[in-house]
């Protein structure tokens, strides 16, 4: 995005558990237009990483923007990023809650 985003942070989550372990809400055409993390499950890769937090909004997954994506599509992009064996990690661009 050409628009500067305050406090955007790149977080690399290694796939070191059998699940990613986050719950998200939001997507295009909902009250929360970009996916927001609502739960981090203990024992999942995200929890082990330690840098993803409840309340963060996900802007990009492996460089793919989630802007304009409906909830199911955003969830599919994240799920496929976790499932693919091409990478041993997922890069999340997230924004801290303001």
């Amino acid at each position: 995005s050409p628009i500067p985003v305050p406090c955007a942070v790149l977080v690399r989550v290694m796939k070191n558990a059998s699940t990613l372990g986050i719950a998200i809400e939001g997507g295009a055409n909902t009250q929360q237009p970009l996916p927001r993390i609502v739960t981090i499950q203990k024992g999942g890769s995200a929890h082990t990483c330690g840098r993803l937090k409840v309340g963060q909004v996900i802007l990009e997954v492996n460089g793919v923007s989630l802007r304009g994506r409906e909830h199911k599509e955003a969830a599919r992009i994240i799920a496929e990023a976790f499932k693919t064996k091409e990478k041993d990690h997922i890069d999340f661009l997230v924004v801290e809650p303001s």
Binding site: L20, A23, E25
Partner: peptide, 15 residues
């Protein structure tokens, strides 16, 4: 603002 009020809440997906 009015548009925002008409938008539905999102479902939640566990990943």
């Amino acid at each position: 603002r009015e548009k925002r009020l008409t938008l539905p809440p999102s479902e939640i997906t566990l990943l």
